[in-house]
Every structure is written in structure tokens, then in C-alpha cells.
Design a protein around this nucleic acid. Structure first.
Lengths: 108, 108
DNA sequence: TTGACATACATCACATTGCGATGTATAATG
DNA sequence: CATTATACATCGCAATGTGATGTATGTCAA
């Protein structure tokens, strides 16, 4: 019943989408998604970090450690070439999904 | 990557939504969802029947066998009182979900 | 100074749910 | 007569989010 089941399958695509704007690190992705969605997407670390590792393993993003003096070490992720291609496909799927949902939610 | 992960969590709500129109049996729900969504929702029996049993176990729908002479026995499902209440809540969640998705998919 | 909290990474057991395979059985169709 | 559609059902498997837990540092107020 919880909405956690609804989130399944959306996290990877939304991460890719966010990374089209600029490189971001994990914690930053969590905060940005939460703010943009007015709190709806509140990714847990147990979901996000494995997700990032998966995307990196699939060659869609690349992580790079950056150590600044004022903050803790952060791992910034950037879209790869394959990643830029994947975003288009995946957001397309998501939009089809939304359209299909709307078709079934529309009162007959 | 497959869209099957996207479907997770939507099936129960969409079944309830369809049953607001009229009582339906399992096979009919599969066909109706497929037609309405232009093929996007193509529920498998291995997902649908357990889902119906779950909803019945939760007291949201009630199944009743109907044996006609021209067709095979069909199990028609009807929304219970609790079910009618649940539809509103769950479709509300789904719509919030869609809104949140659109917020993150909107190009900044 | 000390305790609490936010930041920032990570892993793991567990729960949920959809898929494919398989099974049973009847009706319709070529 | 064989194939396909109808109509129910169950089961092992795969995928993914949650909560708990761990480590470590920075910040801020009491």
C-alpha cells in the first residue's frame, strides 16, 4: 500500500534526468529530488547508492571523487555518452507510462 | 530497464479504479486495461490473480462465481464499502505520484 | 566542551510485487 | 482434429525500495 512500490523503476531514470543539468553527488541528488518534488521523492540511501553503482556499472554515469577543504569528500557523477543516450529513451518510457496511467485514471 | 518495474504498485489501484465502473472478472480486467491503455498495461495472469486475492483478503473487493451456460465459470469482483473508500485514497496517491514525476521530468 | 544533528559515503537482510512457466479445463475456430 | 482463446490458479525467480547499521567529519547550541 505504501508508495514505495510506486517508486520502483523510476529512480534510475530520474537520476539520469537530474544529471543532464550538471554533475551531482549522491547526497545532493537526494536533496534536489526532494525539493523539486515538494517532498514526494525522498530517496533513501539504501536505494540511492546501490542505484548509482548500478548506473556506473552499466556505463551510463561516471563517478569522480572530489576532496575540498571545507567539506567531506564527495563523489560527483557525470553522464557518459551512453548515459546521454539512455536519458532520452528512459524519460520517453516514463512519459508513456504517465500517459497510460492517465488513460486508466480518466473517468469513463 | 524493463517497464515491469514501473508497473509495481499501480496494479491494485488500477483494478480498483476499473471496478468503480462495473463488476468485472479477472480476464476481463486484463483485456480492458490493455485496450484502454492502448497496449501499455498488459497484465500477466501471474500478477493479476494474486493481486485480486490480495485485494479480496484486504476486504476491498468481493468475488462471486457466476456460472453461465454459454461461457466458462467466471469470478466477478465487486468493490466493497471499504474498497470504494480506498479507491479515492489510492487514485489520489497515484495522481500525486504523476505530478511529482512531471516536476522532475520538466526541463529546468 | 560536549552532545546533537546534518553531511556523506556504504552495505545488508527483508518485504513486496511483477514475470515466466506450468497446470487444468472448456469453448471456438479453422 | 489441432490450435487458439478463454478463465481460473500457483510457484520460483528477479528486481528494487526500506530500515537498520556502520564509519567519519563538520557545525552549532547548551
Amino acid at each position: 500500500m505504501g508508495k514505495s512500490e510506486l517508486l520502483k523503476g523510476t529512480t534510475e531514470t530520474l537520476i539520469l534526468q537530474l544529471l543532464t543539468e550538471r554533475p551531482m553527488y549522491g547526497y545532493e541528488l537526494i536533496q534536489t529530488a526532494r525539493e523539486r518534488s515538494h517532498g514526494f521523492f525522498d530517496w533513501k540511501e539504501g536505494a540511492l547508492y546501490p542505484c548509482l553503482h548500478r548506473l556506473e556499472g552499466d556505463g551510463l554515469i561516471a563517478g569522480e571523487w572530489q576532496v575540498a577543504k571545507e567539506s567531506k569528500p564527495r563523489k560527483y557523477y557525470t553522464l557518459t555518452q551512453a548515459g546521454r543516450q539512455a536519458v532520452t529513451e528512459r524519460t520517453g518510457e516514463l512519459k508513456s507510462f504517465i500517459q497510460a496511467l492517465n488513460l486508466l485514471l480518466a473517468q469513463a
